[in-house]
Design a protein around this nucleic acid. Structure first.
Lengths: 222, 222
DNA sequence: GTATGTTTCAAACAACCGTTTGATCGAATG
DNA sequence: CATTCGATCAAACGGTTGTTTGAAACATAC
């Protein structure tokens, strides 16, 4: 068959990954059934187990396909930043931009998952599913260590305990924002803010978390 | 039988609510089965449907029991704050403390749900389950309107669009922190920070979100 | 004591879950 | 052409899901 006309007929495994990616971010892992996935991918029900082994393994497969490009990009951005800064520490603003820009790049590139994967990744971080509690950290260890270390260098007056809390808060805000969870929408019926465009979100997001990170150290003897 | 000795034998419906509260926060709504709930509550399987009608309705029941005291307390705290400030606007720091203190009060009072309900509430906000997407906003409308309005008065130089984003980020950080989702634990194998005591969290949390809220307005023509 | 209305109970319901099976297809290899 | 091997398929697997049923147990009122 002419590989020119029918080459678009994508791989079965890829079709499954694409379908699962969308459904997981829409309904969550537990609420997404095998039958929903295979139906959307237009493949046989048994195809998931044949190609991936199990539903849990498929979940991991969805991530391993996308995760490496993202972490590599985020680390590259930080590398470049530190190279430019030379002996000085890059500013917290620049560090946070390096991270968020990596996510934005992915979000605008459908071939690397696009906004759907960014939302799925964020949602998964927040919900923390057991099937990924072991595999995800391995992918991220270097990334987080590098960013935590860079932030610590930029903020030497914040003790490491408080800084770790602040980074935790900052990433909470970042991941929730990218996950499309406009928390206000949960209780305000008609929110002014409803855009899901990550680039727009980042405009307001970065200054917010930077301000929180660089705030004066909390008094110890409270 | 003597109501003195056996009065502690609590209501069946209450036993179900208590059991469901714990299980929902531990495993999430979807992953918690009726049989898990009734087994923990030591009641018959049919009791849930008899007393609440359905699993979804039980989910709502878990919230309506606890939500009113929490929102009332949070609004009371804000009332008191504004009364003290007179014509002046309370500081953002005081406003955020009013909200967080309400959550802390609940967290330390087992009779109003304790830390378990605070975590469940936070988790539910983040995950946003369909069964509550309609009922929760009604409970919270006044609360959020009041706090948003107070914050707007304290920060007149921030336009309402940006302020709504910032509030969204701030509540993301707050709810995630109380939900016990130490995001860093997801990728750092041995986090320095691992405490779940809400009062300890709040020590670092409030300064962080306040700094983010009161940061200079983002330049518009970027 | 009898009748009334509420609560509890074991059992079963249909529907769905993730997974497995064994047959069948299709293309590449000898 | 025959064989082999990976991919696809309909069908069924055992198990769990939320919910319903009808009888039994209970308390309350007449």
């Amino acid at each position: 068959m002419s590989d020119l006309l029918e080459a678009r007929q994508v791989d079965t495994a890829t079709r499954i990954l694409d379908a699962a990616e969308v459904l997981f971010v829409e309904h969550g892992f537990e609420a997404t059934s095998m039958r929903m996935i295979t139906q959307r991918a237009e493949v046989n029900l048994a195809a998931v187990n044949y190609h991936f082994g199990s539903k849990d393994a498929l979940f991991q497969g969805v991530f391993t396909r996308r995760l490496t490009p993202l972490t590599r990009l985020a680390v590259q951005n930080l590398d470049k930043l530190e190279a430019e800064a030379g002996p000085n520490a890059p500013s917290v603003d620049a560090i946070m931009h390096a991270f968020v820009d990596a996510a934005l790049d992915i979000a605008h590139d459908p071939k690397r998952g696009g906004v759907i994967f960014v939302r799925l990744l964020s949602r998964t971080f927040v919900e923390s599913h057991p099937a990924l509690r072991e595999s995800l950290p391995r992918h991220y260890e270097e990334l987080v260590a590098r960013y935590a270390q860079a932030t610590a260098k930029a903020l030497p007056h914040i003790d490491s305990n408080e800084l770790q809390w602040r980074l935790s808060f900052a990433f909470s805000a970042i991941f929730n924002a990218f996950a499309g969870n406009n928390i206000l929408r949960l209780f305000v019926s008609d929110p002014v803010v409803n855009a899901r465009d990550p680039r727009l979100i980042a405009t307001y997001l970065v200054p917010f978390v930077v301000a929180g990170l660089i705030a004066p150290a909390t008094a110890k003897g409270a």
